[in-house]
């Protein structure tokens, strides 16, 4: 089995996003960038499937700036085999990403594409499902467990009411949720080894798809700020204020 894992370079999850004063977007200059946390989970899952003898090859792909190579290298150090960077400095929306990924799937013919359920910058939660529709593939989104057997995957999904398990025929899309696994840290020898693993350099034009944004950003603003309230001294005072001041009890 061959697995394709799309990985996105995003603002590190520990860094609070700052809105630019001109309201054109979020300031990404001089801030720490990392692999989208859900994509680390996807890479980990693919590597485990390989370690279990269920997968033979893991290809990672990122669409983004030159620096997204670092994100690919991180995935290679975790155990992926090779990478593809589709280089662009423009913002590519999930629809555009899905279209590029559909072309990569055409070329690579993977049996499974494992994406994160959500990129923590655009919070779109859309790319995997879109790719599924474009390819006509089934999907198991928000996965907290994936079992491969007999040309199908049993995927346990985190849904609003609890957990749901579905069976999807391969080839298929899986999107990962937080509880699927705990990603490993790459060891130093593996980081060194990853430097020699190949990364194919591409540009969107190589794939001949239209990735022009469909959404025009009018403005990006700060959310209404919540003021810190007061520190109460006791539980009695708390309950009394909730009843008499806030009127919520």
């Amino acid at each position: 089995m061959k697995i394709l894992v799309p990985v996105k370079r995003v603002l590190d999850y520990n860094v609070k996003a700052r809105v630019k004063p001109d309201q054109s977007g979020v300031d990404l200059s001089n801030v720490k960038m990392s692999m989208n946390p859900f994509d680390e989970i996807s890479v980990e899952e693919a590597v485990r499937l390989k370690e279990d003898g269920k997968a033979e090859e893991i290809v990672v792909v990122s669409i983004g700036p030159e620096k997204a190579q670092e994100t690919i290298r991180t995935a290679l150090a975790m155990g992926a085999d090779r990478g593809i960077l589709i280089k662009t400095d423009e913002t590519v929306e999930p629809l555009g990403v899905a279209k590029l990924l559909a072309k990569v799937v055409e070329e690579e013919s993977p049996d499974m594409v494992v994406l994160g359920k959500q990129a923590i910058d655009d919070d779109a939660n859309a790319t995997g499902q879109m790719l599924g529709a474009l390819l006509g593939w089934p999907q198991g989104t928000f996965a907290s467990k994936v079992e491969i057997a007999d040309g199908a995957a049993n995927v346990t999904r985190e849904v609003d009411g609890g957990l749901q398990t579905i069976k999807i025929n391969l080839p298929a899309i899986v999107t990962t949720d937080l509880r699927l696994n705990e990603p490993r840290y790459a060891s130093l020898p593996n980081i060194m080894k990853a430097k020699r693993k190949p990364i194919d350099m591409k540009v969107p034009d190589d794939y001949g798809v239209d990735i022009a944004p469909r959404l025009q950003v009018v403005k990006v603003t700060e959310p209404p700020k919540r003021e810190a309230g007061e520190i109460v001294e006791s539980v009695e005072e708390l309950v009394s204020k909730l009843k008499n001041e806030a009127g919520v009890l």
Binding site: A17, V19, V26, D123, Q216, V217, K219, V220, E222
Partner: peptide, 11 residues
């Protein structure tokens, strides 16, 4: 977007 640390208006 960004865990609600920014609000984006799009057309």
């Amino acid at each position: 977007i960004y865990a609600g640390n920014a609000m984006m208006t799009v057309k």
